[in-house]
């Protein structure tokens, strides 16, 4: 349980948000040309990092907008928040 700084609404409790999982997984540009291995990679394989993870969140009980969060999954500390389409911050 933690506070998330929504780029549109400001600081709110995490219970107002819904987590959309790992960020920057690109949708296949040519789905018909993908092999089974590439489909498995896209659909199921996840980094599931213990440490700094980039992920998507939705302010579902607020502005209902999607954005990205950089969070340390070993202690739930949030390091950065950035909007969809923006480049992830480089450490």
């Amino acid at each position: 349980m933690f506070i998330i700084n929504c780029p549109y609404c400001g600081e709110r409790d995490q219970t107002e948000f819904s987590c959309g999982g790992e960020a920057h997984i690109e949708r296949p540009k040519q789905p018909t040309e993908l092999s089974d291995d590439q489909w498995a990679e896209y659909l199921f394989m996840r980094k599931n990092i213990k440490g700094i993870q980039f992920e998507r969140w939705n302010h579902i009980h607020g502005c209902r907008k999607w954005f990205n969060v950089v969070r340390d999954t070993s202690n739930d500390k949030i390091h950065a928040v950035y909007k969809m389409g923006e480049r992830p911050p480089v450490k």
């Binding site: 349980m1 219970t15 987590c19 992920e55 969070r71 999954t73 070993s74 739930d76």
Partner: peptide, 13 residues
């Protein structure tokens, strides 16, 4: 909890 975490705590809600 609905998000990835290794904290061995979990949320109050």
């Amino acid at each position: 909890d609905s998000y990835v975490s290794y904290t061995q705590k979990g949320s109050h809600n």
